[in-house]
Amino acid sequence: MAKTSMRGVYGETLVKLGAKNKNIVVLDADLAKSTQTGKFGKAFPDRFFDMGIAEQDMIGTAAGFAAAGMNPFASTFAMFGSGRPWEQIRNSVAYPNLPVKIVVTHAGISVGEDGPTHQACEDISIMRSIPNMKVVAPADSVETEKIIEYLAEYYDSPVYVRLTRMTTDVIFGPDYKFTFGKGIIIRPGTDITIISTGIMIFQALEAAEILRSKNISAEVIHMPVIKPIDEKMIIASAKKTGKIVTVEEHSIIGGLGSAVAEVISEKYPVILKRVGINDTFAESGTPEALFEKYGLTGKNLAKEALNVLKTKNGK
């Protein structure tokens, strides 16, 4: 199957929505070519605002648009859309609960060769901790399109959407329906639960295949919405398998793994292994080489699952 680009689809979806919804305005910080918001800029130049290399100003301006009843989408790389303007997001967007959609690209280590200064692996954590803020990480371009379509009509709160630089396979069909706050069981199983977010769904499915070859039935859950997280689904799966492995292209501190840990430790304690960036800065390299070195492969995930299955605390 041909690989597709989330950010490419993001730009195209904005154009499609922009024609119908005249309230949509799009802001970028000198990365419109990379984030693909430039497509919207070409189609609707009067509603596109390149703010220059000034992310704090971009978020503040987006807040002003939202306060005046517009529907702003603000985009840049994940690093500069979460870290640099964190305080602007907290105080000028989230605290007044203004419906600004912060859609970032180039998240995680799959940014690759640009190296650690550009590899946002803490963004889920720092966005998730802000009241009112919602955090979303789609798995492929189809889901990206559905999420952006959904958010174009969503005014209840600010939302942080995390996209990837690299192209990926497509996992969802055209009939996919996005439901805010719901996880998706991609593959049911009974022995162990693998929960992934973003593009790690592919590693999760690969691991499930490896486990199947060893007669282990893994349940694979894709969690596109990390906040508010689908507690019901996590607890139901925990009750069924008693063992959970999470995988994310993000630090194991504060991300999906932490969110799952928060749910099960309070409501239904089971053994949990978090797979992700292990409290370290990565390095320059191809995405594939980085995934290999930092353990974000189906093979490593299967290995971690087997380790969990070996522990006595299991069901």
Partner: peptide
């Protein structure tokens, strides 16, 4: 702005108001 009538923007952390004003002004022009 969510608690007091007449407040057009929530503020308090310094340095952020002018960006917000720009956003409002752009919206008004649009």
């Amino acid at each position: 702005m969510k608690k007091t009538p007449g407040i057009d923007m929530t503020t308090g952390s310094l340095g952020q108001g002018l960006s917000v004003a720009n956003g409002m002004a752009l919206a008004a022009k649009l």
